Amino acid sequence: MTTYCKFEKALDILVGKWKPVILLRLFANGTMRFSELQRAIPDITKKMLTQQLRELEYHDIIHREVYHQIPPKVEYSITAYGHRMTPLLQAMNDWGIGHMAHLEELYGENRAEKLIEGESFID
């Protein structure tokens, strides 16, 4: 196996609809409880949020702190290792903003939104 191209490995960690959203919420808010994350991302199911958090925890991107109390309390935060992703996520966000502006210049605001949402290119 070659060691010079690990782009796919990085994408495996970031790809999907929810991981970037979860990470951006945690970067913006610091430590968050599960219920806070769920309220911050209303379209995600409990099962999907749990799965995505476990995967991010496995990769040491986020830390899961369990407080043994009644009722149980679990908090999530970005690890020191995870903070190394800040420039990458910021660059992706900046590119996304620029890309939306570019599409709006090409197609107009309403058409650009439809293209981003995955609607057909052909009317």
Score class of each variant (00 low, 15 high):
4 Y>P: 00
6 K>M: 11
9 K>F: 05
9 K>C: 03
10 A>W: 06
11 L>W: 07
12 D>T: 02
13 I>Y: 00
15 V>C: 10
17 K>L: 14
17 K>D: 12
22 I>W: 09
23 L>R: 10
23 L>E: 06
23 L>K: 09
26 L>V: 08
30 G>K: 00
34 F>R: 13
36 E>L: 03
36 E>N: 04
36 E>Q: 14
37 L>C: 09
39 R>E: 15
39 R>D: 13
41 I>K: 12
43 D>Q: 15
43 D>G: 08
43 D>N: 13
47 K>W: 10
49 L>G: 02
51 Q>F: 14
53 L>M: 04
54 R>L: 07
55 E>W: 10
57 E>Y: 06
61 I>C: 01
64 R>C: 11
69 Q>R: 12
71 P>S: 03
72 P>H: 04
79 T>S: 12
81 Y>M: 08
83 H>G: 00
84 R>I: 02
85 M>W: 14
87 P>E: 03
87 P>A: 09
87 P>F: 03
90 Q>H: 07
96 G>M: 15
96 G>W: 13
98 G>W: 02
100 M>P: 00
101 A>S: 13
101 A>M: 10
103 L>E: 01
106 L>Y: 00
106 L>H: 00
107 Y>W: 05
108 G>R: 03
108 G>F: 02
110 N>C: 02
112 A>L: 05
112 A>F: 06
113 E>I: 15
115 L>C: 03
116 I>P: 00
118 G>Q: 07
118 G>D: 08
120 S>R: 09
